[in-house]
Write a protein that binds this DNA or RNA. Structure first.
Lengths: 112, 112
DNA sequence: TCGTATTACATAAGACTCTAATGTATTAAA
DNA sequence: TTTAATACATTAGAGTCTTATGTAATACGA
């Protein structure tokens, strides 16, 4: 991203939405999915991702499953019922934020 | 705003765009204009606004004019040529950010 | 088979941006 | 006359990120 500051506050929303859509994902998978969906415009750094995943788990929004892949252990994250509600709420908040920003900046959403 | 974290990174964009549209404004006027345009959803705190104005001035994006209103002194901020360019760039960055977020979140802009 | 890239987890220091609190002073309105 | 609004400003602290670093398994090409 040209303006990484804009990303602030959106990381939790992104994680929760991806998990809501995909059921369960592990950390590295999330970074790859974001890169793919954004067409390479957005890259999640591990220093941001893992602390956020741990925080969301500590808050009861996510639960984890460890799956052994040979000698390697993958840690899958899943939404809890609370996490599912929060995911929906975060999406709404984001949409409201965008609508407000369009008003304040007096610009219109671009389609396509 | 329900999610004040989302505002992070957008303050400079808001200030520069308002000045681009209005020619010149003073700090308090900016807070009122944002409140008005957002329908009360967004309130700029002075602790965020003034340091940002000073920073933008120090970076050469804004210049100032002090106007005496009786015993009170208003400090008007204006875009420099560089500031005008940066304002346009920040709007573009914001629009690109929104487009990317819609892709990543797999949602669509709401019209109206 | 040896080195490099990728996969996969994680932490820590520091930067940056904001909120909340506080401060000063003028002016308008009740 | 006292409260609200106007108008400037600073500071401590919180929160969220980037950058750097670390460990280790696996895949791939030379």
């Amino acid at each position: 991203m040209h303006s990484p500051e804009l990303l602030k506050g959106t990381l939790q929303t992104i994680i929760l939405k991806l998990l809501a859509d995909s059921g369960k994902m592990y950390g590295y998978e999330i970074t790859q999915r974001v890169k793919e969906l954004s067409g390479g415009m957005l890259t999640l750094t591990e220093g941001a991702l893992y602390p956020t995943l741990h925080k969301l788990e500590a808050e009861g929004l996510l639960s984890t499953e460890k799956i052994s892949m040979g000698k390697r252990v993958r840690k899958y994250y899943l939404l809890t019922p609370t996490g599912t509600n929060t995911a929906a709420q975060k999406i709404e908040d984001f949409e409201a934020f965008i609508a407000t920003m369009f008003k304040v900046l007096q610009i219109k959403p671009q389609l396509g």
